[in-house]
Simulated scan of single mutants.
Amino acid sequence: MTPTLTPTARRQRLGAELRKLRERAGLTATQAGALLGGNQARISNIEAGRHGVSAERVRTLTCHYDCVDADLVEALAAMTGERRRGWWEEYREILSSGQLDLAELEHHGRRLRTAHTSGIPGLLQTLEHAREVMRQAVPALAPSAIEHRVSFRIKRQAVLDREDAVPYQAIIHEAALRMRFGGRSVAARQLQHLLETGQREHVSIRVIPFDSGAFPGSGQPLYYVHGPVPQLDTVQLDQAHGPVLLDAAAQLDKYRQVFARLESLALDEAESADFIRTIAQDL
């Protein structure tokens, strides 16, 4: 099998989890390769996400690695079954791999949680708001590049519209709600969109007012994507050079605590909706 030059984040994550289990079992890549009747390079390519691996082979490897967590084994085996290219692949030559990885992550997530201080979460932005956000990029983007990014962001929002939509929770600070991207009319329509989207059964929008005081996270946008088992959760952080994905156990535990703290500071859903209406009236 020819190695994949641009492995997806999902395939890389599968490989990384298999590597963790191998190392926990005290086996080298050479030893693991021998158990499969192959060699060290084969295991290395699987763990790097460059080679695909079947569900049966995942079960075989985890058995050799003495993994007794049946839920984790089946969750890893399920990560091998995606044969059809995701819609985001049409942007492969246009956008960064980090942006595509985010769409793939959302597509497979079992629950989505995000927290924003100075901006509206991408899945909740109107087209006008998204376009204005893209216009503020440094260095400036060409009009065609802006439209590619805007269309990608709007297509990502389909994850909230599909029949099997998963729970989505957004915690938004008052500062983000009061920023007028595109002027009063665009801001008004954005706030109305939040109110309408927040009425969906699987969507929760909660607000942290200024008077709630200090909060963890230093204002950095946070995105927590739940996997089928806690070990396969992922945290995405926005950085100037693009999104960064974190999945180490200590990192996941840290951001679970951060979100718990943010939730304790946020208004409940009904109070948040009233708060958004008040801001809209002040425009």
Rank of each mutant, 00 (worst) to 15 (best):
V258T: 13
A273H: 10
E263W: 05
W88G: 06
V68K: 15
R277Y: 10
E82L: 12
D164Y: 10
R11T: 05
V138E: 09
P121R: 01
W88Q: 09
L100P: 04
V68A: 15
L36P: 00
L35N: 07
L5S: 13
A176F: 11
W88T: 10
I205E: 08
G227T: 00
D69E: 10
L95W: 03
A165R: 04
A9I: 02
R200W: 13
N39F: 06
T197G: 03
R19H: 07
E163Q: 12
A16I: 02
L222S: 04
C67N: 06
L123A: 05
H173G: 04
L222F: 10
R180H: 07
T234H: 05
D211S: 09
E147G: 05
A78G: 08
I172S: 11
R22C: 02
A16N: 15
M1F: 07
H241T: 09
L265T: 01
A103R: 07
A16E: 15
E74W: 07
G33R: 08
S96M: 01
N39E: 13
E17S: 05
H148N: 06
A140R: 12
L18M: 07
R42Y: 13
A9S: 04
E263H: 10
D71P: 03
P209S: 03
V258G: 04
L252Q: 03
E269S: 09
P3K: 00
A142Q: 06
S218F: 11
A214V: 03
I208C: 05
A140T: 14
F215D: 04
V58P: 00
Q136L: 12
L123G: 02
E196M: 03
Q40D: 13
Y168D: 15
V186D: 04
R206V: 14
G122Y: 04
A16W: 14
I171D: 05
A270G: 09
A170N: 09
L21A: 12
L72D: 04
V235M: 09
A187C: 08
L14V: 07
G81Q: 15
Q251I: 06
H129L: 15
P221I: 01
S218T: 10
L127H: 14
H51G: 01
E196V: 08
A266P: 07
S272P: 08
E82T: 09
V229M: 03
A165I: 05
D66Y: 14
Q190M: 03
Q190K: 06
I94N: 06
V150C: 10
Y168T: 12
P7R: 05
T234I: 06
L177D: 06
G198S: 11
S54N: 05
Q236E: 09
Q281H: 14
Q231M: 12
L195C: 08
F210L: 13
S54T: 15
W87F: 12
Q257S: 09
G242F: 01
Q231W: 07
Y168M: 13
E163D: 10
R184F: 01
R22I: 02
L267R: 13
T114N: 10
L265V: 01
H108V: 01
Y255W: 01
R113K: 14
E89N: 14
E201H: 08
V207N: 05
L246H: 06
V225G: 01
Q251E: 12
L191N: 08
G86D: 09
L267G: 02
G81W: 12
F259M: 02
P243T: 11
G219N: 08
G49T: 00
E93F: 03
R131Y: 00
T6A: 13
R57I: 15
L112G: 11
